[in-house]
Structure formats: C-alpha cells, structure tokens
C-alpha cells in the first residue's frame, strides 16, 4: 500500500511519457484509458491489489514486455552478484573481525581496524572504478564491465564478467561487516561466561569456540540481514559502474524513462525480498537463542 501511494505521488503523466512530447490530447486520453490511469484512485488501487494477487505486474510502458519476465532476466545477474559478493564479504569479514578483536593490542589488529574504517568511507562506485583501473586497464586481467548477452549459456564468460563487481561488493560490505564482527567479538571476550569457562580450566581459544561463536552470532545475524538486503538494493551503483543488466540498472532506467510498471515491479519484488530476508534472520536468531524463542510465550 505504501508502494502504491509512493508511485502515484510521482509527478509526470505516464501517458505523456509513453507517447512523448507532441502527442494530441485525443491520443493521451486513449493511452490513459488503456493504462487505467483515468480511473478514480480507489478503482486504481483495487485493480492494483487484484493484479498483485495474480502475480501480474503488468507490462512495461517502454518495451511492452511483461514486467515479471524482465525481472526474471535481470535477477539472473543481480542475485549471483549479491550472493557471491556477500559470501566473499563474510569470508573476509569474519576471520579479520575476530582477529582485530582478539589481537586488538597488536599492530596488525590495529591495522585491520584502521583499514576497515577507511573501507566504510569509500563510495562503492569509486572502489569499482579503481578496481577497473587496476585489473582491467593496467593488468588487463578482467573485463572492465558488461555481461554476455547470452547470459549464463556460457558460464565461464558470465562468471568472468561478474568477478570485478563481486569483488567490489565484497570489499565494501566486508569492511562494514568487519566492524560489527569485531564489536561482537569484543563483547564476547569481555563476557562473564568466557571468564567462567577460563576460570574452570578452559583455554581461551577453546572458550571462544565453544561459547563465543553462538553468542557472537546472534547480534551479527540481524546486521547480516540488513546488509544482505541493502547489498541487493544497492546493486544499482555497482551495476552502473560495470554496465551490468541487473535489477539496479532496471530501476535506474525505469526512473529515467518514467516506466511505472517496471519501477513498481522492481520495488515490489525488492520489498518482498527485504521482508523475506528480515524474516529469515529473525527465525535464525530464534533457532540459536532460546531467550528469543520464549519471549513470545512469556514476556518477562
């Protein structure tokens, strides 16, 4: 419903955008009738809910292709980009974040923290441009952008095209995750239960593995949910840098062309994904933390 309101707030008549400047008033009226934008808002809203229930997101004003098909094609780029980038970010952030916390008194622990501080200040697109400059232009190792027209029919080509974008995403998200992992690890190290375990003869590393991983992962999981959602939604910038035909560039194009069905489709699918990720993160936390499971029954 929020989406519906937001989209109707966009000024500019879709019929105008569709026909371009110089259309006659009759043409515009006809186009409006066809699009249903001449109907009262209430009717429009009911139509909107109706089509949502049938998973019908309409057809693009510009290409006249079904919105859902277009989204499907573009998901084939954005989903692998997001997921691979995210997994790589985890691979970077978790060990380094733990080291930065455990070895916070050493020079390399300090260095990791400083570099991650720098990492969160770097805009995604600039990092992308820098990586292109180094890997595509200076070293000539990887393509500077683009995605094979035939998509995943040639997996190797597709993967090569995604390597630099994935690395860009991973470094940016990794830097921000690292700080959360470090903070969570510091909390764990300071915790009483780790002290208890050590006081009863457990080694530090053993205590960290047996008690720290579970306890540290609870706060991290909610951050992971938010970061995964924003990686997906923030794909627009990376896709622009590397000229990838994903959800983000679809969104950008839809905004520029005032292609409402496409814009609405991207937003609906994105919102669903965000909610789904949030729900999954919530479930995962409940699985780990018995206190969260019990809270529903007995709010104490």
């Amino acid at each position: 419903m929020v989406l519906f309101a937001l989209l109707r707030l966009l000024p500019g008549d879709p019929a105008n955008a569709l026909l371009g400047v110089g259309a006659t008033p009759e043409q515009i009226a006809a186009a409006r009738a066809q699009l249903g934008s001449d109907q009262p808002l209430g009717t429009q809203f009911i139509n909107y809910l109706n089509s949502l229930a049938r998973f019908d997101l309409g057809t693009s004003f510009v290409s006249h292709a079904p919105v859902l098909d277009e989204i499907g094609n573009r998901m084939a780029v954005t989903l692998p980009l997001t997921l691979l980038g995210f997994v790589l970010a985890l691979v970077i952030a978790i060990p380094l974040g733990v080291i930065a916390a455990v070895k916070s008194q050493t020079w390399y622990g300090w260095l990791i923290s400083v570099v991650s501080q720098l990492g969160i200040a770097i805009p995604v697109f600039w990092l992308g441009i820098l990586l292109v400059t180094v890997f595509a232009i200076n070293l000539r190792l990887l393509p500077s952008g683009g995605f094979p027209l035939r998509g995943w029919q040639n997996p190797l080509e597709a993967i090569t095209g995604l390597l630099l974008p994935v690395l860009t995403v991973a470094l940016v998200i990794g830097a921000s995750l690292l700080r959360y992992v470090r903070a969570a690890t510091l909390d764990v190290i300071d915790s009483d239960y780790i002290r208890t375990a050590r006081a009863l003869g457990s080694g530090f590393t053993e205590a960290l593995i047996k008690h720290g991983i579970r306890n540290g992962s609870v706060p991290i999981i909610s951050v992971l949910g938010i970061e995964l959602a924003s990686t997906f939604l923030g794909a627009v910038v990376v896709e622009r840098v590397f000229t990838l035909p994903g959800m983000g560039s679809m969104l950008l194009l839809a905004i520029q062309q005032r292609d409402y069905p496409n814009l609405q489709g991207v937003l609906i699918v994105s919102t669903l994904l965000v909610l789904l990720i949030g729900f999954a993160a919530d479930m995962l936390q409940r699985l780990i933390d018995p206190r969260l499971r019990d809270r529903v029954q007995a709010p104490t």
């Binding site: 937001l6 707030l9 966009l10 000024p11 938010i226 959602a229 924003s230 939604l233 923030g234 627009v236 910038v237 969104l251 950008l252 905004i255 005032r258 814009l263 937003l267 919102t271 965000v274 909610l275 990720i277 949030g278």
Partner: peptide, 17 residues
C-alpha cells in the same frame, strides 16, 4: 522497514518523484 532500504535508494525515489 524503511531502515532496510539504503539511503541512496530512498533518495533515488524521491528524486524520481
């Protein structure tokens, strides 16, 4: 829910509006 959307995306939509 809004927090889950990156600042940039919300800003893009406002610009679009």
């Amino acid at each position: 829910i809004l927090i889950a959307f990156p600042t940039l995306l919300i800003a893009m939509l406002v610009v679009a509006a």
